[in-house]
Design a protein around this nucleic acid. Structure first.
Lengths: 344, 344
DNA sequence: CTGAAAGCGCTTACAG
DNA sequence: CTGAAAGCGCTTACAG
């Protein structure tokens, strides 16, 4: 009577050589057949696959990483999880990568370049197969780390400005143009004294600021006193505070462009509380079209940003790079959309 | 003249034996000294450490995982990233784990037990050192997988009810009691016809529902028609829709307990739009105290839930379990707080 | 197209 | 307290 096959392994794990035995081939052939490397006879591939599924074989990621010097991890560095924007980006990227057989390792930089560098250092130890990173303002050491590691990398969310030298691979939209476009939208609706209220002041917010500035300068309406910058984190609460400040100190203002929707939502609620008419007295606009903006009273004019698409396309580009296929375009512009609602 | 030491490794990586050479000991001694395993002479430890930092040695996680059958990854499974609640939980847990030297691998289940099982299967292949998981409603196979893997595991967010057999290790608060407590708060403020509006209908929402039910039953005010359950995802938009529905169909209602703050915020904005007075005509309460709830008009009465503390304490408990130290308490109750504001 | 050998960089028993 | 040997489970060249 045949007894069930004895496992000699201490770990009890089904290994490559177990499959090789069962299929009557060498381990290396199993390895090749399973990875879909060409140069294996179709008949053998079939036998290997049958044995593999029959035994319930699953490759060991650690062994694979050690032997190949490459893991199936992709590291993704984002500034903050509390901004819905990055959650959407992450969710989309993760889904695409997972479908491609990769695990995602998330690092949260808290908008701090030093922390980003530290995280990068840690992540790189795991020999990630690829890297997704927000923006391209990194410390010099971080840049060196990335280059030396040779790990394929895609930068997300912003694009190099005209003539600027950007990273090799990126997916995003022009934060600068989006800032300018929203400002022009307000100008077209007859606004003349348009303030810019920025928080966090990360590189992308600064690009929006520059866009706003150039649009106002073109119209001959720029004034430094229209700039309200606060390095604190963007939040509903801060938006309310900034709104009161701006309205209190510069009553002549007829529109405010908040660099993120949470600020604008806070401003809208503050206006409601203070009885300041929006848009009659002052127009309010935000950025990103976050959840809730369409339900505000009045509904918020904003810029819809394609963060989910950026996540998907960025991950897709990285997948190609990891396979050694250079993508068709090295930088992809996914654009943006002005969403005119009742607050302007 | 001494030439710089030649690296024989193809990979160019500084390895354990490089350090061993430099320190004049065997590789295994380096391994032991660096991991702080006792039974190494202090003098050797010092020499090893000096050589290690001088050469810039960093252990290879893949090799370590392969040899020890244990990685330095901790898997964390949460239902959804788009609910701020879980982002707070994750952020806190991640921070604690990182300080303990562990990388976090995130799995998003989308409130789907089958997806959870699939993720668990994938994660377990990486031999995580530990597991953090939301709730304890899992498929039978998922439970088996967890048990057989022997991976230390802490369940987050809910506690077993009185007399119920829960998981071995958990950190959370009683969703049931929180639901009952908020309902009693509304009763104390004189409300008699208190509806429950639930979305998503995950296990924790159901516990809140049961808590609401028992509080109303105690007061002799329970009626099945007060229950409004919708399996769709919780959102501001859904809250607005449910509010209109409830007010349209059951005008006698004088309070609504929404199972999550985003629903309640949507309801508040809908009330503003429709000109329905809150709390004069109807009181509104939410759950979780999410960002923005304190800025609503009127500000939202809700339950503040200690998700960040749950993340920290859960990760701390897991850290202890991974070190082989059984935690003092197997289940930790972190409580909750009723936040009475102007909407009730 | 297939395989035997060597190696990835560490740790786990097993000796002493 | 220290070390030589073996092994974790795969893949990378190198042959044929």
């Amino acid at each position: 009577m045949p007894t069930p096959t004895k496992r000699l392994r201490a770990t009890g794990r089904v290994t490559l050589s177990d499959v090789a035995h069962a299929a009557g081939v060498s381990p290396i052939t199993v390895s090749r057949a399973l990875r879909g490397e060409r140069a294996v006879a179709p008949e053998l591939v079939a036998r290997v696959q049958e044995a593999s599924t029959r035994l319930g074989y699953v490759p060991d990621p650690a062994a694979r990483a050690l032997a190949s010097q490459r893991s199936n991890h992709v590291a993704i560095l984002i500034p903050k999880l509390s901004n819905t924007l990055f959650v959407d980006l992450l969710d989309a990227a993760q889904q695409t990568l997972r479908a491609g057989g990769f695990q995602t390792l998330i690092g949260v930089t808290h908008y701090d370049e030093a922390q980003e560098e530290q995280l990068l250092r840690e992540q790189l130890l795991h020999r990630p197969a690829g890297l997704l990173i927000t923006g391209w303002n990194h410390t010099a050491s971080a840049r060196t780390l990335m280059e030396r590691s040779q790990v394929p990398c895609v930068h997300l969310m912003d694009l190099p400005r005209q003539g600027e030298v950007g990273p090799a691979h990126c997916v995003g939209f022009s934060q600068n143009e989006a800032g300018a476009a929203l400002t022009r939208h307000l100008l077209e609706r007859g606004r003349r004294r348009i303030a810019f209220a920025g928080a966090q002041l990360d590189p992308r917010v600064m690009q929006r600021l520059y866009g706003w500035r150039s649009a106002l300068q073109e119209a001959g309406l720029y004034e430094p006193t229209l700039e309200w910058l606060n390095p604190a984190s963007s939040s509903l609460a801060l938006g309310a505070v900034m709104f009161e400040q701006i309205m209190g100190q510069t009553p002549a203002i007829d529109a405010i462009f908040f660099c993120n929707d949470d600020l604008a939502q806070g401003a809208l609620l503050a206006a409601l509380r203070l009885g300041i008419q929006v848009p009659a007295r002052v127009a309010i606009a935000g950025f990103n079209d976050l959840p809730g903006s369409d339900h505000m009273l009045p509904s918020l004019t904003t810029v819809r940003t394609p963060r989910a698409q950026i996540g998907t396309a960025g991950a897709g580009m990285l997948l190609a790079l990891m396979r050694g296929q250079p993508p068709e375009q090295s930088c992809v512009d996914l654009g943006f959309e002005i969403v005119g609602r009742h607050s302007s």
